[in-house]
Amino acid sequence: MAQGTGDNPNFSEDIKTEKDLKWMEEKEKMVSEYIEEKYTKNKGIRVLGVGGTRNTIRVPEFEQETYYYCGPATVKQVLDHINGNSNSQDDYASELKTHDDNGTDFSMVDNVLNDNQNDNNYVYKTFNSDEKDKWLSKIEWGVDNNYPTILDLKITSKYMPKYRESVEGHILNTSGYDWEDHEIRLTDPFDQGNRGITLGNTWHPADGVWKANQAHFREAIIY
């Protein structure tokens, strides 16, 4: 299990239903059209320093209550943001089938989110190493439309300097982007070393977060 967080290190396939596949198709089209329209003046290309390239949303922080509760805590953060209220981390741990011997299976997160809110059809998607721009678009669309994106990261201080020690797998959500400074804001339920540095809404290098997501064996996000 991931040290200090609770991301399940065992791979399990994200099996999509016909409804999931329909949502995925609709979501891909929606995000693509949104980003293209937003950046029409720049021919659909994300350009640093252009107006509208920074945004944040108010996602509440809930520090994970156990060393393996990053999944339940992140689900609570996202649902509390969308619904204005949320259940306990224990409740979401039960729905996610989170256990101290294996943590949370990331492929379960979209299902639990969709079972507990009706505003956004969350979908699980993997990305190849040459799809960084598409990955950034998903995060940008989510923040602009008030829906946090959920990430599964393999963190090192090289990628995300606020972390002093490496973490094999960690689940957390986005809450902002700043393309002028090329940063992504994450709502992190984990306070590494009890320093108050990683916990809550914190900014990290966008390229480092991307690399941390690609370094994880899933290479996946939920948006």
Rank of each mutant, 00 (worst) to 15 (best):
K41T: 00
K97Y: 10
K16C: 08
E63S: 08
T56F: 00
D110A: 14
D90E: 15
V78Q: 09
D101C: 07
D101P: 02
K38N: 00
P72T: 03
G52Q: 03
D14Y: 05
N87V: 02
G49L: 01
Y92C: 07
T53S: 14
M108Y: 11
I82P: 06
I45A: 11
Q89G: 10
K19T: 14
N83Y: 10
K19W: 06
T66W: 10
N10D: 11
M24R: 09
Y68R: 08
T104V: 02
F62L: 01
T66V: 08
L79Y: 08
V112S: 07
D20L: 08
V59P: 01
Y67H: 13
T56I: 04
E25R: 13
N111T: 13
F11E: 12
T17N: 10
I15V: 15
E18L: 14
K38H: 00
T53K: 06
V31D: 06
S107T: 15
N118C: 04
T40L: 07
V50R: 03
T17K: 05
D20G: 09
Y69N: 01
N114A: 02
T98I: 03
T104G: 02
H99W: 07
K38G: 00
N42K: 07
N87A: 12
N10F: 14
V31W: 04
E63W: 00
L96W: 06
F62N: 07
N42C: 02
N10W: 10
G71W: 03
N114F: 00
K38M: 00
Q64Y: 08
D14A: 11
V47L: 11
N85E: 15
E36H: 09
Q64E: 08
D7S: 12
Y92H: 10
G71Y: 02
K97S: 11
L113Q: 08
Y34C: 04
F106P: 11
D110R: 09
T74I: 03
E61R: 06
F11K: 13
T53L: 05
I82N: 08
K19Y: 09
I82G: 06
M24Y: 04
Y92T: 09
G71N: 04
Y67I: 13
V59N: 04
E28Y: 03
E33W: 08
H81S: 10
K43V: 00
L113G: 02
V78M: 09
V112R: 07
I35C: 04
G51L: 10
V50H: 01
Y67D: 15
L96I: 04
E28I: 14
V109N: 09
E28R: 14
V109E: 06
H99N: 12
M24E: 08
N116T: 02
G49H: 03
N85S: 15
K76I: 00
A73F: 01
I57N: 07
L113K: 10
S12M: 07
T74P: 06
D101M: 07
D105A: 13
T98S: 15
K29S: 15
G52N: 04
Y39A: 03
Y68D: 05
L21M: 11
D20R: 11
K19F: 10
D90Y: 13
I15R: 14
